[in-house]
Each structure stands twice: as C-alpha cells, then as structure tokens.
Design a protein around this nucleic acid. Structure first.
Lengths: 194, 194
DNA sequence: GGAAGAAGCGGACCGCTGGTCCGTATCTTA
DNA sequence: TAAGATACGGACCAGCGGTCCGCTTCTTCC
C-alpha cells in the first residue's frame, strides 16, 4: 500500500478546520453549542468537506484531540524523565496523571467536547485503552498490592474532563491546588503515605 | 402555599411515562436512540404531556432516576447499618460506594442515560452534591489523612455509569468481581491496607 | 347531579442539526 | 497542457427536541 499523498488543498483545509474548531470550542462553554456548520464557516470551508475529511462530528473531535495530544504522547513514549519510559514506576505514575490533568486544564473545552460527544463512551476509544494499559502495567510493577487494572481505571476517572471542568471552572479551584490534590490522592493509592 | 393536589390522570400518566421510559432505555444500548416521541408513544401519551410534566428531556431522565433512587436515599438517610447514619465512617464509606455501584449495575441504562444526557454535566446536579458532601464528611471523620474533598470526588468517579457500563458490559466483568475490586480500591484509599 | 372553570391533553407544527449528494473547481501527472 | 483523479461546497434531507393551542377530562361548588 503506497499511501498516496494527499492533495495540498486538503491538508491546508484540514489545518484550517482544526484551528477554527479549537477556537470555537474554546469560545463556548457548552461544546454542543458549536455546530458543524459553524466550524465549516469559521474555517472558510464547505460542510461537505468537514464530513468528507472526518466522517462525522465525533471523528472531527477525535482527530483534533489526537493532534493536540500528540506532543504528550511522544513525551511519554520516548521523552526524558519523569514522563519517559526510563522513569521508575513509582515516580512515573504520578507524573503521567499530572500530565493528563494539565492537558485537560489547558484544553478544557477540547477534552470536554471529546468526552461529552454523545453516542459512544469515551472508554471504547483505543486512545483510552492505551493510557489504561500503560498505567496498569506501571502499577503492576510498583510495590503497592492493589488490583492494578481497576486502580488504573479509577485513577484515570479522577482526571475526567467534566470533573476537571467542574472543579477548575465551576468551583474555581486554582490550577496548582488541583494538581496537588491529585498528586496527594495518587500517592495515597500508591501506598506512598505522606 | 396549599400545594394543590394533582389530577388523577396526571399521576397515572406520570407513572406510565416512567414505566415506558425505563423499559425503552433498558431495551436500547445507546440512550440517545430513545426519542421523546418514542417514550410518549410507548406510554400512550402525547408528546406535549411529556414536556408539560418534565420540562425537557433532561428533566424526564432526572425525575426517573430520582424516583428509582428513592429507596437508596432513604436507606442512607434513616436506614439500618451498614448504610444508615449510625454506622461508623470506616465501615459506612465502602458500604455507600458499594450501594452506588450496585444501583448502577442494576440500572445501567438509566444511570447511563442520566450521565450521557448532554448539555449539563452530571456534577451540577444537587443530587451529586448530596452524595459528595456526605462522602466527604465521612472521610473527614475517618482516620486516613488524605484530602477528603478530592478523595470523595475521585471515589465517586470510580463508580461512574459509563465506566461501570464499560467494565460490566463491554469487558464482561462479573458483578461480584467488580464489587470486590471497588471495595479493594476503596480500602486502599481509606488506608485500610489489607 | 350538573354546570363552570381549571387543569391537563395531544399531535400538528417549527427551527435547527448532523449528515448526504453530486455538479463543479482544483490539483496532479505525464 | 490535457486528462484523470481528487476534493470542494452548499442545496438538500430526515429526524430530533421543543412549542402551541383547540379540545377533553377532571374537580369543585351549588
């Protein structure tokens, strides 16, 4: 499969759509207020193009998230400590969770849109699968004796977009405090009592 | 305010709608497949009646959940041990979480519909607020030194409907195992190491 | 019991959204 | 530069949540 390279206008449009969608989601509280037509218009593109390129609404949001998440993914897979693979599990787990939290704080609207987008649960995505597997394996290799599979799910659940939105947005919990709280909780789960 | 009592047909219709909605949600995987028109038809009622009685879709689902949750609420507020108020916190916390989990297992479709219903996050409901407050206060009175506010959020997040649906449905984790896992995780958080 | 008035009913109707379709414009390649 | 492939775009569609208002049913009071 030679993988024909895409046309120039296609890649330009793709980028324009990402930009526009990102901006629109950032501007609205509720992701559902942003319609496909809005995005198309803001990107200077026809609606057909959106659906041709991304399949459907969910596809668009997923693609956008994946793109924005790319740096983090790379940092985790081949980056330096404390995110990278060389870090010993007991230090890497909190680092990972902190990174996820920070991402969701920095891209609240986006993460929210991803999880909010109805129809398919956030769990069925291979995206989630990857994070979960990674976390589970790390927990397995850490001293604590808890059931690592469920613990991984639970820890990830503690960083869910709408919870983050609720705490950081609604309740006004400042960024650093939230990070500290998550870190403390994580430490508790790991058995690393303070 | 004397609170005029509602008409007979009104209460009958209300019950019929609950019944119909419950059945329909149970029958479909994705709650969004169930339309208001469907519910109205299944209940033998006009669409207008639905909206007059519940305001909107979210209102319907909330009301239905509240109704189904009523027994649990009562058991927690004035029931016997281990759910009732007389139970010492370290035993009551796991009992509460287990009860929540069981509810979501027994009413998967419903709980899913409630959390899935777009637009407003599950966190803004006073319903959630109540559970959270209760749990936080209990954690406060338990020996463990962790930040009880965040811990309460995190523990509740571990029982979220879509996670439960994913584990119990998609992954096929059997009921009792799931309960055991949650119990173990809870114990870990509480510092009650096995 | 019956009449008057309130309360509730129901389904035609509306605006809007995600998604499709296909004639047309743009890019690529030889 | 001509021809074929690819992507564009906006008119179009079906279906949804939600509204509206003429009509029915219940309640109440004599």
């Amino acid at each position: 499969m030679p993988e024909r390279k895409p046309r120039k206008d296609a890649v330009r449009n793709r980028a324009a759509v990402f930009e526009a969608a990102d901006a629109l989601f950032a501007a609205c509280q509720n992701p559902e207020e942003v319609t496909m037509a809005d995005i198309a218009a803001a990107a200077g593109v026809g609606k057909g193009t959106l659906f041709r390129a991304f399949g459907d609404r969910t596809g668009l949001i997923r693609a956008l998230c994946a793109a924005r998440l790319e740096p983090l993914r790379k940092a985790v897979e081949e980056g330096p400590e404390p995110l990278g693979p060389a870090t010993p599990p007991p230090r890497r787990v909190p680092a990972l969770l902190d990174a996820v939290l920070c991402f969701k704080l920095d891209n609240r609207h986006l993460a929210l849109a991803l999880e909010t987008t109805g129809s398919d649960s956030p769990y069925r995505t291979e995206h989630y699968e990857r994070w979960h597997t990674l976390l589970r394996d790390l927990l397995d290799r850490a001293p604590g004796a808890t059931d690592s599979d469920f613990a991984a799910h639970a820890l990830l659940a503690a960083t869910r977009a709408d919870l983050v939105e609720y705490l950081a947005g609604e309740k006004g919990v400042p960024r650093e405090e939230l990070r500290a709280r998550l870190a403390e909780f994580t430490a508790g789960v790991l058995g690393t009592r303070l």
